[in-house]
């Protein structure tokens, strides 16, 4: 019985159907919490738990879906290219924003973890959580953090950005598309960028750039810890 879930097609089917169901629910419910990505993740976990399917079986297909992440990130270059003029005009504010934002992310995480008296290894695992997974993992390892905690925190942060970016925009009353885009990419990497793309072309392009620059800044700052 277990073997039938070993087929990679199972994981692929589950991801696509739960995601599409998420989109359907999102259209019906119209609340930011009904986010297709979040619904997809929760439904997949529920199905795996109910039928007692190991994650490894699911991930035979799941890893094929994950494989598309890198090409999708590469594809963001097209959005940056179409906004090249705006990028050139605002290059300085974008770089400063990514640098200050990354510093704010790392130091706020550190201070909050200290306030909660969390373990040193957990704290260092959390510090790079705002940047894209490969960078965050490398930084966490270098600092001596627990890498699986880093991976979970990165994904969770990305989901938070993807769900609440529009809420943040309202909360802080900022209308500047460049500033909003850079902020989304800096605080919630590629997952948040998917929401920036939905908000607008400029937001999407700026968020895409911020994935790279904020990631780079985080690597540099981590060298001084």
């Amino acid at each position: 019985m277990k073997e039938i879930f070993q087929n990679p097609l199972f994981g692929i089917i589950l991801c696509i159907f739960t995601y599409e169901l998420g989109i359907l629910l999102n259209k019906k419910l119209k609340t930011p919490i009904a986010n297709p990505l979040l619904i997809g993740i929760v439904l997949c976990i529920v199905v795996l738990k109910i039928f007692n399917i190991p994650f490894a079986s699911f991930n035979k297909g799941g890893s094929i879906i994950s494989m598309f992440l890198a090409p999708a990130t590469v594809a963001l270059a097209v959005s940056i290219y179409t906004q090249y003029k705006l990028l050139k005009e605002n290059l300085f504010p974008i770089i400063i924003g990514c640098a200050v934002g990354s510093l704010a992310s790392m130091s706020s995480v550190y201070i909050l973890c200290k306030l909660f008296r969390l373990d040193e290894k957990i704290t260092y695992a959390m510090v790079p959580k705002s940047v894209t997974t490969p960078i965050a993992m490398a930084v966490s390892e270098q600092l001596g953090g627990v890498v699986p905690v880093t991976v979970s925190a990165v994904v969770l942060t990305g989901i938070l950005g993807a769900i609440f970016a529009p809420t943040f925009i309202k909360l802080f009353r900022v209308k500047d598309s460049v500033a909003v885009g850079v902020a989304i990419g800096t605080c919630s990497h590629a997952a948040g960028t998917t929401k920036a793309m939905e908000i607008g072309d400029i937001e999407g392009a700026m968020s895409s750039i911020a994935i790279g620059i904020a990631g780079f800044m985080t690597v540099i700052f981590a060298m001084f810890i």
């Binding site: 696509i16 995601y19 997809g40 993807a162």
Partner: peptide
Amino acid sequence: MPMFFIPAG
């Protein structure tokens, strides 16, 4: 793109 994050989640 959001769907590609499901397995990681």
